Simulated assay, not measured.
Amino acid sequence: MEHVISFPGLGLTLHLNRVAFSVFGKDIFWYGIIICAGFILAALYVNRRVPDYGLTSDDLFDVLIFAVPVGILCARAYYVIFQWADYKNNPAEIIKIWHGGLAIYGGIIGAVAVVILYGRIKKRSIPAMLDLAAYGLLIGQAVGRWGNFVNAEAHGGETMLPWRMVIDGGAGVHPTFFYESIWNALGFVLLHFHSKKQRFRGEIFLEYVAWYGLGRMVIEGLRTDSLYVPGTPVRVSQVLAGISCIAAVCLIVYNYKKHRVYAVPTEINPVNPDNTEEEDNK
Rank of each mutant, 00 (worst) to 15 (best):
I95D: 00
C36A: 15
R76Y: 10
D86F: 10
Y79I: 00
Q238G: 04
P273H: 07
A152I: 13
G221D: 11
K258D: 14
G11W: 04
Y31Q: 02
E278R: 12
V239M: 08
A85F: 09
V218S: 09
I252D: 11
L132H: 14
L41Y: 06
K257D: 06
A111D: 01
T13I: 03
F39L: 14
I81P: 10
W84Q: 05
P265K: 13
I121P: 13
W84K: 01
I252P: 04
I108N: 03
I219H: 06
V209R: 00
F193I: 04
I95G: 12
S226C: 10
L64F: 13
N151P: 07
L41P: 04
A113C: 08
G54D: 06
D62C: 14
R216G: 07
S125H: 12
E278K: 12
Y78K: 01
F24A: 15
L186H: 00
H194T: 03
D280S: 05
N255E: 04
N255V: 04
N148T: 05
R201I: 02
G144R: 10
G147A: 09
I97G: 07
Y256R: 09
P265W: 14
L117D: 05
G100H: 02
R48V: 02
G32N: 07
I72A: 03
G221R: 11
R49H: 05
A171T: 06
M217R: 05
V50S: 04
V68P: 00
Y262E: 15
G202I: 02
F149A: 12
L251E: 09
G231T: 11
Y78H: 08
D225K: 04
E2N: 03
V115D: 11
P270E: 09
H192S: 10
P8C: 07
P162T: 03
C36K: 00
K197S: 05
Y228V: 07
I116N: 01
S244M: 14
H3C: 01
A152T: 09
S125N: 11
R48M: 09
A77E: 00
G202M: 00
V229G: 03
A42I: 02
K258H: 15
E277K: 15
V46S: 13
N47D: 15
F200W: 05
G231H: 13
V68K: 04
E278V: 10
T159S: 12
I34N: 03
S22L: 00
Q83S: 13
V68F: 12
G136F: 12
T224P: 00
V114Y: 01
H3F: 01
G242M: 02
L14N: 02
